[in-house]
Design a protein around this nucleic acid. Structure first.
Lengths: 154, 154
DNA sequence: GACAATTATATTGCACACAATTTAATTGCG
DNA sequence: CGCAATTAAATTGTGTGCAATATAATTGTC
């Protein structure tokens, strides 16, 4: 029944787009992995370092808000970064519920090495122009906002 | 040094795009989860079922090629689908290295339920027009191809 | 036709990701 | 003030992902 299949096609677009996003995320990871191996980081660890390089000394919650991750993911990840001597974790004096995460000298120093290794290789691997990347990124952020608000209303 | 920062901006686009993809994938997952819970599936399990609903009886390798997943991921996933009585796994008679994965009656029957529950909700949650979704999906697939070929040459 | 190389799964180990629960600290309300 | 409600991390359990390795079957080659 081709008529029914045709009527379903637009409905299936959401599925196809999600798979495109999901599989592109994996493809990105495959490009990042050999680069990040040279820094001794995984991709989520690299994201945390990017956040801290931008603004040092944040609570676990603040890191989580920026990366859309919760303490169940961040706590063990931060412990690994701590045992790699890249960050230190200290209870806040003002609010002892909070754990403040700060860069060590070594963690701050990794920034320059990361800057030379990662962004140029990633940009090249996308095979896209700056204009294309900008447009795609903007569309994805808008999509993410829609999805997050839809999920929030549940 | 604003000059240096400005020079870095285009380089950082790759990073920003990757994070947009990565965080959009998570956002999609948050939308899918309550829907797929009603089917008793995770998102990767749903992907496998979509593949099998499209073409029944595929080897693990063939499923992996369609979804960009390897046996390390698929073997335990398929075992879970098997213990949920949605698929059956049988060694191929012609080539005993291969395991053929086929739908059970129950697995085939789940298709209709999935069709009514998932695609309409996903399409609505994206908040995008069909034209926007089509364009975005096409751009992502092109990006994925670039990334995969870059990773392959690595 | 034996045997090395290749191929298809399976297994192991590590690192996310998130739901659900727990613990401890802080806030808010009467 | 005192206690309930809230909040921040940590913990537990399940399910991916993937690298590396293991195992078994098939293919290619001499």
């Amino acid at each position: 029944m081709p008529k029914k299949a045709a009527a379903d096609a637009p409905l299936l677009l959401g599925n196809q787009l999600c798979f495109a996003v999901y599989s592109t995320a994996h493809a990105f990871n495959r490009v990042y992995k050999p680069l990040l191996d040279r820094l001794g980081l995984t991709y989520p660890q690299y994201l945390v370092m990017l956040v801290l390089w931008e603004r040092d000394s944040l609570s676990v919650k603040e890191i989580g808000e920026r990366l859309f991750l919760d303490s169940g993911t961040l706590t063990p990840l931060l412990k690994r970064l701590e045992s790699a001597h890249l960050v230190k974790r200290t209870r806040s004096a003002e609010d002892e519920r909070q754990v403040l995460v700060g860069l060590t000298t070594q963690g701050a120093g990794l920034r320059e090495k990361a800057r030379t290794i990662v962004p140029p290789a990633i940009l090249a691997a996308t095979g896209c122009s700056v204009a294309e990347l900008t447009a795609l990124q903007k569309n994805l952020v808008a999509l993410r906002e829609s999805l997050n608000s839809a999920a929030g209303e549940g």
